[in-house]
Computed example of a mutant assay.
Amino acid sequence: MTHDLIKDGKFEYYITGKGTPIIILHGLMGGLSNFQGVIDYFPSKGYQVVVPTLPLYTTPLIKTSVGTFAKHINAFIDHMGWKEVILLGN
């Protein structure tokens, strides 16, 4: 399975559908394929499904933390101009 990722400044993500964004947060070893059911299901229900890549391999090890990734996702949400989102993680 392949998905075309959008590169937008410091952000990289997959997006499909229209409506309230559901942001899928993958785990440390997770990939888009882990969420294929969500990616396929929710756009037809009026949601936009977004899977941003987390900077796991570009963040210095000493700064690799939940807090660092939370700041990255917050900056991504601000960058996209969203006021309300649904966060989904594993």
Rank of each mutant, 00 (worst) to 15 (best):
I39E: 02
S65T: 12
D78R: 13
E12I: 09
G81Q: 06
G17L: 07
Y14H: 12
G81E: 07
F76T: 05
T64A: 15
P52K: 01
T64N: 13
I22F: 00
G37S: 09
I39F: 04
S65P: 02
I23K: 01
P43F: 05
Y14I: 02
F69Q: 08
L25S: 03
N34I: 04
L25H: 02
D40Q: 15
A75V: 02
L32I: 12
G30K: 00
F69N: 03
L32Q: 03
H26T: 10
L28Q: 11
E84L: 10
T68V: 12
Q48N: 09
F11G: 01
G30H: 03
M1E: 12
F69H: 11
M80K: 15
Y47Q: 00
Y14F: 15
L5K: 09
L54N: 12
A70Y: 06
T58S: 14
D78P: 02
K63I: 05
L5Y: 10
L32E: 05
H72V: 14
L32T: 09
K63R: 14
T58R: 06
Y57L: 13
T20H: 03
T64G: 05
T68H: 15
Q48C: 11
G67N: 15
T20R: 08
L56V: 07
S65K: 10
D4M: 10
I6P: 08
F11W: 02
G19E: 03
N90V: 09
Q36C: 02
D40K: 13
I24S: 01
G17I: 03
L5T: 07
I77A: 05
T64S: 12
G89Y: 08
D4Y: 04
H3T: 03
I24Y: 04
T20Q: 05
L87T: 14
D4V: 14
N90W: 09
Q48E: 15
I39D: 00
L87K: 04
V38Y: 02
G19W: 08
D40W: 08
G67I: 04
H79S: 05
S33R: 09
F11A: 01
I73A: 06
G37P: 05
G30Y: 00
L28K: 06
H72L: 14
